[in-house]
């Protein structure tokens, strides 16, 4: 399908190359993709079919972003692209030329945790840990969305800025499944972090 017969116009685009044709003439069409990942500029040659998630996990070996479904159904692959959270599995890497991407590895490291990562540890906001990077990336972005005044289904009054309430957090985080059932603790971790953050802002 995708690689079966690339239109001539596509092959003519700068940076897009066909590998040496193999049997069946279905050799992958590749493109050089430049991304800034966790503050570092990376250039990689990628099969056009490569999802942004697989670009991170399989090519850059940034395996913190998880693959739970590869279908946009679980949120395990949540990463922050140009300031907004997205499901890395639902988008192709080649669509993000020049994008600024923050993955869980870019938020903090084991010896220098981001405050929300630290709050997850304190509140035991995880069990198996597989949904956790997605929850934390989503959590960081959700609190930004609330601060930016972006409403949600749980926002009662659209003429006013949304409140930083548990109902808002639960609604906005509902695309991040946790089969271990750490929700109660995740909301507490996020609330704790949001309060710290607003305290330090004031």
């Amino acid at each position: 399908m995708a690689g079966a017969s690339a239109p001539a116009s596509l092959a003519a685009l700068p940076g897009i190359a066909r590998a040496v044709p193999g049997p069946g003439d279905d050799a992958p069409v590749t493109a050089r993709v430049a991304l800034t990942v966790n503050g570092v500029r990376r250039e990689i040659d990628l099969d056009l079919r490569t999802s942004l998630l697989d670009a991170m996990r399989e090519h850059l070996h940034l395996t913190g972003s998880k693959k739970g479904c590869d279908h946009g159904q679980c949120g395990a692959c949540t990463m922050i692209v140009n300031g907004r959270r997205i499901n890395g599995c639902l988008t192709l890497a080649v669509m993000h030329q020049g994008a600024e991407i923050t993955t869980i590895e870019g938020l903090g490291q084991p010896d220098a945790l981001h405050p929300l990562q630290a709050a997850f540890v304190t509140h035991d906001g995880y069990q198996c840990g597989y949904c956790t990077p997605g929850q934390i990336c989503s959590g960081v972005a959700v609190l930004e969305e609330i601060r930016a005044g972006i409403p949600s289904h749980a926002t009662g009054d659209l003429t006013r800025p949304p409140e930083l309430s548990e109902a808002e957090i639960r609604e906005r985080m509902s695309g991040n499944l946790c089969r271990c059932g750490a929700y109660s603790n995740i909301v507490e971790a996020m609330t704790d972090y949001a309060e710290q953050a607003s305290g330090s802002r004031a």
Partner: peptide
């Protein structure tokens, strides 16, 4: 006690089966 593996799970540095490059 906080989990001793917490700092790995929360930073994505705990490697699961498919991630053992």
């Amino acid at each position: 006690t906080d989990r001793i593996d917490g700092k790995y799970k929360t930073t994505g540095t705990a490697a699961y089966a498919y991630e053992r490059h």
